[in-house]
Design a binder for these strands. Structure first.
Lengths: 153, 153
DNA sequence: CTACTTGCAAATGCTTTGCAGGAGA
DNA sequence: TCTCCTGCAAAGCATTTGCAAGTAG
């Protein structure tokens, strides 16, 4: 299976999910999804506007709402004031984030299964102690990314 | 040492931190800090306005900015659009969050040292693989809190 | 044909800021 | 008495929405 076959499958799956909630997979939505796939990291509305200048911001916002309710896109928690979005983990792979506190960029990292096993078990225990029903978790590492660590050269 | 002694120490430490950045520990700021101590969980601006109706929102926002730059308060990442704030971990204890995806409430949980040791080591490894310099981490568990799990009775 | 989509512009609502008076050291 | 703090009102700005025209099925 080639890379583009995999991408095609992804698009078909997304279309199905949209159909489930009576929504269509239009060119604007597909352009947005393509961007998310290409970037492979959470993007902000600003990123979207830069990459897709022909897509009005209001449409981008509406697409994101629709894609979220279809379970295709997820809004992630950020430390700054800008909302960021990424493909739902069901369409990609469970991962965590390296958040640069200087420039706000977010990188995805895939954890080892051993790590996940430990974390999940421990978190389930902590949650249970508070009568909390866990559904998922997210781990963010805050720090400085490569670019920001470089002295201005 | 009694509980109130400990709280007094905390207030003195906060005052010192504010002084460092040429800021004063006024009654409005103290009221805000007292609320954060009392709640012991991240609070939103709305929570603050409800608890301290005499404190104008604009002052609350300004206090939060000042307290953040003094390293007393931290703005946490949330999944919804409302900013939430809590005392900096240096003043409390390292902890993680149980975030209710239904009502938005956030609970603090303190992890075991074994858990923290494992997580820190693993995360440092992941970060290093991307040339990322980690400074801290945050773990959030998403799910349903006790109140929201209850059938409406 | 009927229902979902889109663009534009206007509205919303959280958050920030200018300014003038008040207060801490 | 110099600097920081506060309140109010006005401004900013990311996000949402009304409406009318476009388009998929």
């Amino acid at each position: 299976m080639t890379l583009s076959d995999a991408t095609d499958d992804l698009h078909r799956l997304i279309e199905t999910r949209l159909r489930r909630v009576d929504q269509r997979y239009t060119s604007g939505r597909r352009a947005l999804v393509d961007l998310l796939i290409k970037e492979g990291r959470p993007v902000s509305i600003g990123d979207i506007a830069d990459a897709l200048p022909e897509l009005p911001r209001s449409s981008a916002y509406r697409h994101l709402v629709d894609l979220q309710s279809a379970g295709v896109v997820r809004r992630i928690a950020t430390s700054d004031e800008f909302a960021r979005f990424e493909l739902d983990e069901h369409l990609t792979e469970h991962h965590h984030h390296l958040i640069c506190t200087t420039c706000g960029q977010v990188l995805d990292v895939t954890p080892s299964t051993a790590f996940e096993r430990t974390v999940s078990r421990q978190l389930a225990g902590m949650a249970a102690a508070h009568g909390f029903e866990p559904t998922s978790h997210q781990v963010d590492v805050l720090g400085t990314c490569t670019s920001c660590a470089q002295p201005a050269s």
